[in-house]
Amino acid sequence: MKKLIIALVLGIGLNGFAQENKPKTNKTTHKKEMKSDVKQKDQTGRDVSKKNEKSQEKKTEPKATVTKTSTTQKKDHKTKK
């Protein structure tokens, strides 16, 4: 039983070292990634500013005032049904 456990641990350990290494990225692909990151940041910045503008517009819009109904209006409403 001990030999089986030792063999499994050894096999797992060797398997971890046997992994292939990824090729290093060259500078041109890194620059392309940087450019796309900048574009994404610009786009998200524009989206956030649009949301902020919309929220400010909603805040500045006058809200409809709610008026209390008078007792005569309540009576009229009940009689209509």
Rank of each mutant, 00 (worst) to 15 (best):
K51H: 06
N26M: 04
T69S: 11
S55H: 03
L8A: 13
M1T: 02
V48C: 02
N21Q: 14
D76A: 14
P62F: 02
T25I: 07
K68D: 04
T44V: 04
S49E: 14
Q19I: 09
T71S: 10
V66E: 11
T79Y: 00
N52K: 10
N52A: 13
H30L: 13
K50E: 15
K27F: 06
K80Q: 13
K3H: 06
M1Q: 05
Q19S: 09
K27P: 00
K32L: 09
N15D: 06
K54M: 14
G45F: 03
D76L: 08
M1P: 01
T60S: 11
K27R: 11
D37M: 10
P23N: 04
G16A: 15
S70Q: 02
D47S: 08
E61P: 00
S36Y: 01
T69M: 12
L4W: 06
T60A: 13
M1V: 02
S36E: 15
G16Q: 13
K51M: 12
T60E: 15
E20Q: 14
K39E: 04
E20P: 01
T67A: 10
T60K: 05
I6F: 05
A7W: 04
H30D: 10
A7C: 07
M1R: 00
Q43Y: 06
K75N: 06
M34K: 13
D47Q: 10
L10C: 11
V9D: 02
T71I: 07
Q56F: 05
D37P: 00
K22S: 11
L8G: 02
K74E: 09
K3E: 15
T44C: 01
G45C: 03
E57S: 07
K41H: 07
T79W: 00
E53H: 09
E53A: 14
T72D: 04
K59D: 11
T25L: 13
P62T: 03
V48M: 11
T71L: 07
G45K: 08
T29F: 03
T69L: 12
K35V: 10
K80D: 09
T44Y: 01
K2D: 15
E33H: 06
K58I: 01
K39G: 01
K75Q: 09
K35A: 15
T29C: 03
N52Y: 06
K81H: 09
K24A: 14
